[in-house]
């Protein structure tokens, strides 16, 4: 290619495009893939990869240690030191940081640089954009949660623990992880979509997640152990995303509870399920609403 000063228009002839034009569905999938890769820093600068990969490593490390311990002590204990379904609650801070960092990274760029009109002047509806972004971040979080579970599973199999039981537990935990992923991704994205400033988005997400968890746990602890009202403590768990989904998991998937108080009885369980789905629905609706209002200038 000859080098020309940029003022001169080079004439090699324009070629028309007669190839396939993929419709909305394929375009949405392309945006989904692009956003998912972006959540782990792939396709971006080297610096963007550092944090997500580091978090992935930190997330997987305890699982690796658990796998090793399981192999060493399997004759004595006959099981995993930590059940699959409790892993996510134990590593909640890491999940929270990942979400706080990557949800704004996904949305704030397009909002801040006002690239959004370029998307919507293409054959892509607003709900397609939201679906792609939501799906991508939920998948990213799911992968973050799944990797350690798989490591523990392999460790369990190597320790010759009963495969049927382990597989069953793993699948239930994966299902729980999926619900965690969808709920947390939704909340993170809703908060991130409210501000084009990435730094503030990060702070707001972590504040909502960390503060709600700290406050609810503390309250639950006090109410359950000092006041003795386990039921009220159980109801309080609806107020923070982490305890909400943990309660869902405990009641629906028969997982072991990591919260201070599980959902109170069958009525509590049903309410937990309803609220979980309501939260997901609300996040979807709010995101769509937000992007309908994005100023198209």
């Amino acid at each position: 290619m000859t080098e020309q000063p940029s003022g001169v228009i080079h004439d090699i002839g324009y070629r028309k495009y007669d190839g396939p034009r993929l419709g909305r569905a394929r375009v949405t999938r392309a945006l989904y893939a692009h956003s998912l890769r972006g959540a782990y820093g792939l396709g971006r600068s080297a610096r963007a990869k550092v944090l997500p990969m580091l978090l992935l490593g930190v997330m997987a490390l305890p699982a690796f240690i658990i796998a090793v311990i399981t192999n060493v002590t399997s004759d004595i204990t006959g099981g995993l030191p930590l059940p699959y379904s409790r892993y996510v609650m134990v590593t909640m801070p890491i999940l929270a940081i990942f979400l706080a960092a990557q949800a704004p990274a996904s949305l704030s760029r397009d909002l801040r640089f006002k690239t959004v009109p370029l998307y919507f002047s293409r054959p892509m509806e607003r709900s397609d954009y939201v679906l792609a972004k939501y799906g991508a971040l939920a998948t990213a979080v799911f992968l973050l949660l799944t990797l350690p579970l798989l490591i523990m599973y392999v460790g369990a199999l190597l320790a010759e623990l009963p495969a049927g039981e382990q597989t069953g537990d793993l699948l239930l935990a994966l299902l729980g992880a999926a619900v965690f992923a969808v709920v947390f991704a939704g909340i993170g994205l809703v908060i991130a979509s409210l501000t084009p400033r990435r730094g503030f988005g990060v702070a707001a997400i972590i504040t909502v997640l960390a503060l709600s968890f700290a406050a609810v746990s503390a309250l639950q602890g006090i109410i359950r152990y000092e006041v003795g009202d386990a039921d009220l403590a159980g109801w309080l768990g609806l107020l923070s995303p982490a305890t909400l989904v943990d309660g869902f998991q405990t009641w629906v998937l028969d997982a072991s509870s990591s919260s201070v108080a599980p959902p109170p009885g069958a009525a509590g369980g049903v309410v937990y399920v309803l609220v979980t789905f309501a939260v997901i629905g609300a996040c979807w609706a709010l995101l769509n609403l937000r992007y309908r209002k994005v100023a198209v200038s």
Binding site: S45, F113, K114, T115, L118
Partner: peptide, 20 residues
């Protein structure tokens, strides 16, 4: 959507991300 498949748009305002 069918129109937008065949149309190109160059907005007036800044719309380019700085880091790609």
């Amino acid at each position: 959507p069918q129109i937008r498949e065949r149309v190109g748009y160059m907005p007036e305002h800044d719309c380019l991300p700085g880091d790609v």
